Lab assay of single mutants.
Amino acid sequence: MEVRTIKVFTTVDNINLHTQVVDMSMTYGQQFGPTYLDGADVTKIKPHNSHEGKTFYVLPNDDTLRVEAFEYYHTTDPSFLGRYMSALNHTKKWKYPQVNGLTSIKWADNNCYLATALLTLQQIELKFNPPALQDAYYRARAGEAANFCALILAYCNKTVGELGDVRETMSYLFQHANLDSCKRVLNVVCKTCGQQQTTLKGVEAVMYMGTLSYEQFKKGVQIPCTCGKQATKYLVQQESPFVMMSAPPAQYELKHGTFTCASEYTGNYQCGHYKHITSKETLYCIDGALLTKSSEYKGPITDVFYKENSYTTTIK
């Protein structure tokens, strides 16, 4: 009895394709271990004539594949690729409408935090270190965002349907971005203890939790000093293409032309909904596939993004 075979390709990165001759009487799992086709788990399936010449994702289970996976995804987590594939199996079914010149995501599976993050990423200057993220990001900007969303979920250790947080998501993504040249110098002034300067680099240099107003941050924000008295913390120097200011959701007025974009969060910790506000020729609110415009805006804002380049204080 002759062994019926077909020729397929296996890959971990969709760049390096490895030619395989597979036995049609055995499952993919018996031949390769966990195997995925377009995100779908085909591990328990036997090869079919229609699979001839198709590319299958496999887990990096030998040295060659491990090197290829690390170079593309910059992670050695053995569960990463499987999590990416199972997320992709959902995100490829989502709709990605162009809204006001940006790629958004039609609401499904509690994905409003991903839509808000995706919209924000198209408006701030950011370059990702893992080629996987950078490639998928370019495709997302062009309207094909399924891979990018699935990668975000995998890097953030999230599953489809789980509630997510924009600030946490951005923080994970910033860790995989090139923020080497970003720098922030802060000064804390206390009447009792004097003053202390701190220099922050990388992710810490672009994120701040405690106030939404970048102007206020430049002037000074009140913080408790270690001595128990009130101290003032203010920005001395900022070198970065953008800054992200966050605070627990509270009524906040966004003035046209003073910011790049913002995240609105309605609801409580267990259950809520994100919308995205962007400042173009007027203010726009993007909620999944829905767009509304207004000249002014007041609502429960939790993150505001500002364009920056270089700032030095005039406070002496």
Rank of each mutant, 00 (worst) to 15 (best):
E2D: 12
V3K: 14
V3D: 14
I6N: 01
I6M: 11
K7H: 13
T10C: 12
N14E: 15
I15K: 15
I15W: 06
L17S: 12
H18Q: 09
H18T: 12
T19H: 12
Q20W: 07
Q20G: 11
V21C: 12
V21P: 11
D23S: 14
D23Q: 12
D23A: 11
S25C: 12
S25K: 07
S25D: 14
G29H: 06
G29Y: 05
Q30C: 10
F32L: 14
G33P: 09
G33K: 05
G33W: 02
P34Y: 12
P34Q: 04
P34A: 15
Y36I: 06
G39L: 07
G39E: 10
G39F: 09
A40H: 12
D41Q: 10
V42A: 11
T43E: 10
T43Q: 13
T43P: 03
K44F: 13
K44Q: 11
K44M: 11
I45C: 12
K46I: 13
K46N: 13
K46G: 11
P47K: 01
H48L: 13
N49G: 11
T55D: 04
F56K: 02
Y57L: 09
V58M: 08
L59G: 07
L59E: 14
P60R: 05
N61C: 15
N61F: 11
D62K: 05
D62C: 14
T64R: 12
T64D: 15
R66M: 13
A69E: 08
A69I: 10
F70R: 07
F70Q: 11
F70T: 06
F70E: 07
F70W: 11
Y72P: 05
H74Y: 08
H74M: 10
T75V: 12
T76S: 14
T76A: 15
P78F: 06
P78W: 13
P78A: 13
S79E: 00
S79F: 15
S79H: 13
L81C: 08
Y84I: 02
M85Q: 09
M85R: 06
S86K: 12
S86L: 11
N89V: 13
H90I: 10
H90Y: 11
T91I: 00
T91G: 01
T91S: 07
K92G: 05
K93G: 10
K95G: 05
Y96N: 04
Q98I: 14
N100P: 05
L102F: 07
L102R: 09
L102H: 14
L102D: 02
S104I: 01
S104K: 01
S104W: 05
K106Y: 06
W107P: 03
N110H: 02
N110L: 06
N111C: 04
T116Y: 02
A117M: 06
A117C: 10
L119T: 03
T120Y: 08
Q122Y: 04
Q123M: 04
Q123S: 08
Q123G: 01
L126W: 08
L126S: 05
F128Y: 05
F128D: 01
P130N: 01
P130M: 03
L133G: 01
L133T: 02
L133H: 03
Q134R: 12
D135N: 06
A136P: 04
Y137T: 02
R141F: 08
A142K: 14
E144L: 06
E144R: 07
A145Q: 06
A145E: 03
A146V: 01
F148S: 01
A150R: 02
A150P: 05
A150W: 03
A150K: 04
I152E: 10
I152D: 03
I152S: 02
L153Y: 15
A154L: 05
C156Y: 03
C156T: 11
N157D: 08
N157E: 04
N157P: 03
K158R: 05
K158I: 02
T159E: 15
T159K: 14
G161P: 01
G161E: 00
E162Q: 06
G164P: 00
V166H: 10
R167F: 07
R167A: 01
M170C: 11
S171E: 10
L173E: 00
L173G: 04
F174Q: 03
Q175Y: 12
Q175G: 04
H176C: 06
A177E: 00
N178R: 07
N178E: 10
D180S: 11
D180R: 09
S181D: 13
V185H: 02
N187A: 12
T192H: 06
C193T: 02
C193W: 03
C193L: 04
Q196M: 13
Q197R: 12
Q197N: 06
Q197V: 12
T198C: 08
T199F: 11
K201E: 07
K201G: 08
K201W: 14
G202D: 04
V203A: 11
M209Q: 13
G210N: 00
T211M: 05
T211F: 03
L212Y: 07
Y214W: 02
F217S: 03
F217L: 15
K218P: 02
G220M: 05
Q222I: 09
Q222A: 06
I223D: 06
C225G: 02
C227R: 01
Q230I: 14
A231F: 00
T232E: 04
K233H: 07
K233Q: 14
Y234F: 06
Y234Q: 09
L235C: 15
V236E: 07
Q238S: 02
E239I: 13
E239A: 08
E239R: 10
S240G: 06
F242G: 05
F242W: 13
V243I: 03
M245E: 00
S246W: 04
S246T: 00
A247C: 15
A247V: 06
P249W: 00
P249N: 05
P249Q: 02
A250Y: 09
A250K: 08
Q251C: 12
Q251Y: 15
Q251D: 13
E253N: 08
E253Q: 09
L254C: 05
K255R: 11
K255F: 07
H256W: 11
G257R: 05
G257Q: 04
G257N: 07
A262E: 00
S263L: 06
Y265V: 10
T266D: 09
N268F: 15
Y269S: 15
Q270V: 10
C271P: 07
C271T: 08
G272M: 09
G272T: 01
H273N: 02
Y274F: 14
H276E: 00
I277T: 00
T278N: 10
T282Y: 11
T282F: 07
T282A: 13
T282Q: 13
L283T: 08
Y284A: 13
I286S: 00
D287M: 12
A289M: 05
L290T: 12
L290Y: 14
L291W: 15
L291F: 15
L291Y: 15
T292E: 12
K293A: 12
K293I: 10
E296A: 13
E296S: 14
E296P: 12
P300N: 09
P300A: 09
I301M: 06
I301S: 00
I301P: 06
I301E: 06
T302Y: 05
D303R: 01
V304E: 04
F305C: 00
F305G: 02
F305D: 00
F305M: 03
N309F: 03
S310K: 15
S310V: 14
T312C: 07
T313F: 15
T314Q: 15
